[in-house]
Design a protein around this nucleic acid. Structure first.
Lengths: 198, 198
DNA sequence: AGAATAAAAGCACGATCGGTCGTTCTTGTC
DNA sequence: GACAAGAACGACCGATCGTGCTTTTATTCT
């Protein structure tokens, strides 16, 4: 890997971390350059616009998410086990992280839900892909007979993501140490309701 | 009401609206002054610091929330009806609004969850009060015999707020027109699980 | 080693940030 | 209607914003 590529990576990685703390819009070229001990113009030259940097950050975040959550979950057998794996790896993504803790996409979603432009569009489409993954996994669980045939997969995805958001909220903002336990409890309930019989 | 008080109100109200769109940190004294056709210094004199303005905005938001959601819900009889009323008025709060649509507190929560300071503290304490209201209402519903005696009210509050967050996410970001229906469906399920018997 | 190329630094720009003046105009009170 | 208090103003501060352009320094390739 060339030198320039290497620094570019470092810039994006650091920007990603800061974006999780103070928001993507709040990540400033000057402060970023200071932290990386680069000149502002030297840093800027890698992207040629702030928006390009922002899009690069989102791209990097999604790549990591696919690697650490989706790809990992795909190793579980399809049906309910894969749905569970999706949830468990999502929890892991919340917990650890180069990003300080919690999911950057939730921060990004809140930050750009009312702000049009290419960055908004990138956030939206990445979130749609994530929702689609959950919906698809639920759909397969219906096909394999783990879940009720009359289950609405989109409704399942709605409640699935709801749990993650509440987790982020309660663990980061309100600092409830039991947040993760609560999330697991809620997910267990969701699974119960989704299964055959009862 | 004196003249100064009146303009101060207008400033806070406008700032509240803008905060819902671009975030509280993004509401700039200059842009705010332009929109209200005031000089920046004239506007500034009402607060003497940007932070004071931000705190005033949060205060105003919470006051409205108490008026439009909590106080309204208290008119319903205690127990399950009040829990339902709390949810319904919360939905109403999401729908309409001086703020463009959606709950400002969710935006604020995401914006300040990693940013220490007085504004962060104000957001946290207002959110704790809200959680406490939900928890208390669930607790009363247990006492009145509507809800299972072994229900964990804090868990109920966790799942209650989860639904609202997913609603905001799906209706604002992903623009799902069925989001509110999904939220109602999820809440119905939560109620079912919370009631006596089954 | 030396030439070609890429990366970083330096410097400057116009705009805007939150904030501070002293001054002027508008209010409310007697 | 005089007068003090309060509201709004315009000019300006140092700092920082994103973005150019030019020059110097590293890296890469022959």
């Amino acid at each position: 890997m060339s030198k320039g590529e290497e620094t570019r990576r470092q810039i994006v990685a650091t920007a990603l971390t800061r974006a999780g703390e103070i928001g993507l819009e709040g990540v400033t070229l000057g402060s970023l350059a200071d932290e990386l001990e680069l000149s502002k113009s030297g840093l800027f030259a890698h992207f040629r616009s702030k928006e390009a940097l922002q899009l690069a950050v989102i791209d990097e975040a999604e790549q990591r998410f696919v690697d650490q959550v989706i790809r990992e979950a795909l190793r579980a057998p399809r049906g309910e086990p894969r749905v569970v794996a999706l949830f468990e790896h999502w929890l892991r993504w919340f917990r650890l992280g180069d990003h300080p803790r919690g999911c950057i996409f939730l921060s990004l979603s809140a930050e750009y839900d009312d702000r049009p432009g290419p960055v908004h569009d990138a956030v939206v489409s990445s979130q749609k892909r994530w929702l689609e993954w959950i919906r698809g996994a639920a759909e397969r669980a219906v096909e394999t007979g783990h879940f009720r045939p009359d289950l609405d997969p989109a409704q399942f995805a709605f409640e699935f993501t709801a749990i993650g958001m509440s987790l982020q909220f309660q663990s980061k903002l309100v600092q409830d140490p039991q947040a993760e336990r609560r999330a697991r409890e809620a997910f267990g309930g969701l699974l119960d309701r989704s299964r055959i019989s009862h």
